[in-house]
Design a protein around this nucleic acid. Sequence first.
DNA 1: CTGAACATTCAGTATTGACTGAAACTTCTG
DNA 2: CAGAAGTTTCAGTCAATACTGAATGTTCAG
Lengths: 170, 170
Amino acid sequence: MATILTPAQSAFIEEMGQFLGGYGMTPMAGRMWGWLLLCDPPEQTAAEIAEALQASRGAISGTARILASAGFIRRTTRRGDRREYFSSPPEALDSMLSNAGVIYRRLREIAEHGLAASGNSASAEARLREFHDVVAFIEAELPRLIDGFLRDRAANKTLMPVEAGGKEPS
Amino acid sequence: MATILTPAQSAFIEEMGQFLGGYGMTPMAGRMWGWLLLCDPPEQTAAEIAEALQASRGAISGTARILASAGFIRRTTRRGDRREYFSSPPEALDSMLSNAGVIYRRLREIAEHGLAASGNSASAEARLREFHDVVAFIEAELPRLIDGFLRDRAANKTLMPVEAGGKEPS
DNA sequence: CTGAACATTCAGTATTGACTGAAACTTCTG
DNA sequence: CAGAAGTTTCAGTCAATACTGAATGTTCAG
């Protein structure tokens, strides 16, 4: 019953937890995503995840909601099976990247508020203007960059359709 | 003595605090950077900052160290003045952007650890491979994007050297 | 309808970590 | 050297919040 993770697997999961935990999400969200990238089979029940991460069912439930609404995981059900299955779909990466875009958008908005508040100081206005312009540039160019990559990747897949969701014969 | 901030200024500072606070730095770091973008004159003593932000001197001291080591603020001193002056130099923006690069680097490293830990499952390896490749792509392209912007900006400045640190006649 | 198998909710707990403020330290002036 | 002005350190406080686990809600089989 005890899902035994190798030290390398635990380390990866913990790193993912610390990383996402450090950037606004909870550590559990990072661990769960990490586990769903690593696990086999790719679709896991809440019970399996809870056991692998040594976490309570409540934590899994709440975290799953956050991750699903952010587009990081997919929830699926099966006929004649009351359980729900979680997995990390390829689109998760798109979600992650577009999420990065949201960050720059927010920062640009804040910069605009700052600009609006800098009315009677030319030097403050200059500083905030530059801040705003840099952020706005990244905000505008990042999607272009990502789209280019996604298009390339899609093209490659069409040319050489490598079996992706596959199982190994062992 | 009470530095009176307009509501718009307070709002901007608080937004900056929440933003940076939400992404790994402390709220105070965000507020302090926000204030140094807004303030006039651009160089401020620790005492002035503490008063504007209604914070303790200890908090300013610690936060200043973090921000300075991250390249977000500049510390200067003046002959015959024991105080230290803080300001937000133009390079702060470069630091911010290269900081974003560090994030992708860290994530790519984590992805590599995951790949190494995915040994005996082909499907896990495929998921982690894709994760890694997306992150590595962004990591590689982001600096290019930024450099392009900085080069453009530098070129523009050379052509039309607008007075940037200026004071207005009122 | 009843009970079993899951999933979700939420009050409580524990931990983390940001900030305060007083004491210690440094540096400059007279 | 004495003292003033300023800065840094650090132990303690307080608030935020991630997680637990028991109770509640939901869905389906018999």
